[in-house]
Write a protein that binds this DNA or RNA. Structure first.
Lengths: 211, 211, 211, 211
DNA sequence: TATGAATGAGTATTCATTCAT
DNA sequence: AATGAATGAATACTCATTCAT
């Protein structure tokens, strides 16, 4: 007749420490990433992911508390990945086009190795996917803002924010060119993107001069 | 939701001919559009749309063969709308920035009157939503390509295609700036978008000179 | 990119008003009652109930928001039933044994017609079932307390409460005699129950005399 | 959880012979008992029991063939416990109220030391829990019947059975008074229970006189 | 022997679609 | 034509049980 509510989870969900578990964890995540890109987050079931990954649903739920946790983990992985590839400091003497070019080069390599990266970054969906996307967006945007204040220290905070936001818009928008219906080759996209960004920043600075 | 131009059959089950039917059809579509924007296509049920629109599910299914047909019809409506607003011929003597500015101005007004327009245009989803998005994308892109060949007739077909695709990427990417997390005011987005586009096209032409 | 939470349920769950619906509603409830008695609340699935009742799960969920709502409805039905059978006022001149006998007689008839009634009343489970049980328990107990204050007005409030609680214990405990392993016939149970109650109340009043 | 008397095999997979094993076995059982009372048999998982007991699920399954075996073992333990506390022979000269009082006193102490005892005895559930409950019920009922034939040898076998069954009903029913929603203190319950039992038996004997 | 990761059948619940009224 | 009750396949998630280490 008593009625205590649920108690502590018997088996805590956690990132695995053992070799075997780590492999499984990443394998599931990779499988999920591929499927999300191919069919869309909503269309992919946890049972399907597990089956495709060759594990049981139970195993999936050992690593991920629920379906949303899968996208969250994906975003986290991507945020770590790009953070590691984005330079912390800006070495003096490097011209901005070179830096931006190098940065985008790294981004494209990362995107090619992680199929769901740009899908997640450029999505406009709601819910968990949106939250994941926003986290990734803000991570990169913050870096862009820092870079802008390095090269154009005279820009005010709002100016820098706006320019960074526009840059993100250009990057994200042009990334989708690589997919249907345009299907522009990655290298070409990258080249045009650098041009577009540099041209835009140039015009932005011209329109917002020092003093 | 603004005055819609002449009616033309989308993928509906039957053309509503009666006054009442036409009103119903549009009302359902308007309701669906609002709900899709607010909660996302996957999160919105046909029963919910019908309830919110104040009609029965049965009525909804009288106009739309299935849920996908709703997005299809929405896309069709938007394609008609922008087609009507995009000039068929390019009057001589109008400088490109003015034309692009005018076109974007019209686009933004249309987007403001049709809440799901940019949502659908900029989505990266799969399935029916993606197909709807692609149709809209190609419609605008074709116009952009024609405009480019008007102002820069020396560009080869592939060059024109690439430039148009990039332009579309910039437009779509920067449109999302108006929404969280950046939430840049529409007018600002529009202004920056013109700059970005003109700067990009300028650099593109410079890199792809005649001869 | 927006993300509004869930909105109003499109089809509200409600007790049906139409003839057909009412029949369905009660049929599902009857089926569920029988199955709960036979296999236990936890062991019976909503799909099973629906199948056994010859309707679809969807129909079940049209009437009941979730599985708990089924027990709740059952309890409500039973509470209404016994409330209707419990006299509101105590006519003067009726000796207590007669009144208690009559009351128990009604209770047993009701229990015979509603197989899950005593199962639910006498359960000691947790959760929704417990809550349903408690509601039924308190309904009857309140009546018993009122009856006690009618026949033995000198009893203090706590005394009346205790005596009523004990009475409920005796009633509930002895009701289970009708089921295995004892399987005592209902009439016999009823007869012994009246004896036990009268004997107990007699001893209680003797131990708690007026003044 | 009180000192348990001599060990005897329940439905376990194997008798734990080693000191360590015996300790583990009892510890798991104690843990399970507490959890069953607090959350209900169905709500408690084997993994949870093991985790709470600080052992692995595998260890739990070494001692118990399945989840049902845990309740079975619990019942067995309780049956042993009360059997040891119920006098085998009835010393002459002890009045029935004293004997009953003493017996209930022992029962309440046992119940206080073994939290799941009355929970299991008074449950009306199906399945394994019901079977465990019935075994405990019959054990005590047999003793009551023997006691009745000691004090009232003239009662026929069926009369004795009926009176014993009623007594069990009263005991079990009134035991639940100690829990919500009545929450009567244990001592009070015990006192009222003796009264109720003696009053009932008195009335029963009066209604079933010798000859 | 002990461990706890892995399994997968099973459960509650939703929602696109149909069709009798 | 319109309605909305009814359908049932599909989905996220749980948990008793096994077995390789």
């Amino acid at each position: 007749m008593s009625d205590e509510p649920a108690f502590q989870t018997p088996v805590t969900i956690q990132k695995p420490k053992q070799q075997r578990s780590i492999a499984r964890y990443h394998h599931i995540l990779d499988t999920a990433a591929t499927m999300f890109v191919r069919h869309g987050y909503e269309q992919v079931g946890t049972n399907q992911i597990a089956a495709e990954a060759g594990v049981s649903v139970g195993s999936l739920y050992r690593f991920f508390s629920d379906k949303e946790a899968v996208v969250d983990a994906l975003a986290e992985r991507y945020i770590e990945g790009i953070t590691a590839r984005l330079p912390d400091v800006f070495p003096p003497g490097v011209p901005m086009p070179d830096l931006v070019g190098g940065m985008l080069s790294g981004l494209f390599i990362f995107a090619r190795d992680n199929p769901a990266f740009d899908h997640l970054l450029t999505t406009t969906q709601t819910g968990a996917v949106a939250r994941a996307s926003v986290r990734m967006h803000l991570t990169i945007e913050a870096w862009v803002a820092r870079m802008l204040s390095h090269y154009h220290p005279h820009l005010s905070e709002p100016q820098r924010q706006l320019c960074a936001a526009s840059g993100m818009g250009i990057v994200k928008g042009m990334m989708t060119m690589a997919h249907p219906p345009d299907s522009v080759p990655f290298e070409v996209v990258q080249r045009e993107m650098v041009s577009a960004l540099m041209a835009y920043v140039g015009s932005f600075v011209a329109r917002n001069p020092p003093g």
